[in-house]
Design a protein around this nucleic acid. Structure first.
Lengths: 144, 144
DNA sequence: TATCTTTGCATCGTGAACGATATAAATTAT
DNA sequence: ATAATTTATATCGTTCACGATGCAAAGATA
């Protein structure tokens, strides 16, 4: 038996699991808004700055168009945003929020606080949280 | 603009992203073995202890049968394992490694070291790594 | 024994991820 | 200006993740 192949020794398995559990925890909060977690990420990008191209959003979320395009199409069907072909550059697709998409921000504004409360609210110190965030940023930058 | 809805403030987005990047980083190592990352997790569970039920594996990976059954069926088609109906309990499905599955451990044994090298190898201290692992365990236990 | 409930697994449908490939517009090179 | 290359999206196929549902075996209750 190879010790290093034990599940308990693996950081990656922990990250994989905690990410799934977090996504599940978001569901009851996002379901009423008609959003999935990845769609919520797209909405956050657009709430921060409207009228971005598919590429802009992709760079922000580190996702390629093979993931984004079908997702944006679904969100367009839901009436959250519209996709218009670029004026200056005919290759680009510009993504803009609809009124429905804009108004959704108001309903979403308490979700972050609600989520933090849910987990690290009581069990985790701010120091522990910050060192985790830094550690993850180190990982992300190291492999980008 | 709601400050708390900014992407940069979100631990979850970091976890989501780093998990995707890690899975991508595994690919070149796992492709030669004919495994995906989730399949690699299943193999680690079985290398640690052969002949487990679908439920055993699921509890270990915190995955339900709606994810595991199709995955195990694919792995059975690849000849990595066999699924036999339970003898004592007729409801259970027992998962056992084939010779091919057993021999694969030898080829996989250097993957963990290779992966650690890839990221935190140089950029991350052991202390930082440990505090991350503890932080994630705290999160996982807090929301399970 | 007959019925009810629980348990273990399978199936289905939808929404991601992502490698591979395609396509048209824009840019560069010849 | 024509051809070659790059860029921005889109499409396709496969694998996961997961809620919902189905079903048969096992266990509990009447």
């Amino acid at each position: 038996m190879h010790e290093q192949l034990k599940l308990s020794n693996q950081l990656c398995f922990r990250l994989y699991t905690v990410t799934r559990l977090i996504t599940q925890a978001y569901r009851p909060l996002l379901d009423p808004l008609g959003l999935t977690y990845p769609q919520y990420l797209v909405m956050m990008v657009l709430w921060e700055q409207d009228n971005q191209t598919v590429g802009d959003i992709g760079r922000r979320l580190m996702l390629d168009t093979n993931t984004l395009t079908p997702m944006l199409q679904r969100m367009e069907r839901e009436g959250l945003l519209v996709r218009t072909h670029g004026i200056s550059d005919g290759r680009q697709t510009l993504v803009s929020l609809t009124k429905k998409g804009i108004h959704l921000e108001e309903k979403a504004k308490d979700i972050p606080a609600c989520m933090s409360q849910n987990w690290h609210g009581d069990t985790m110190s701010n120091d522990q949280l910050n060192s985790m965030v830094n550690g993850i940023d180190t990982l992300i930058n190291g492999m980008r």
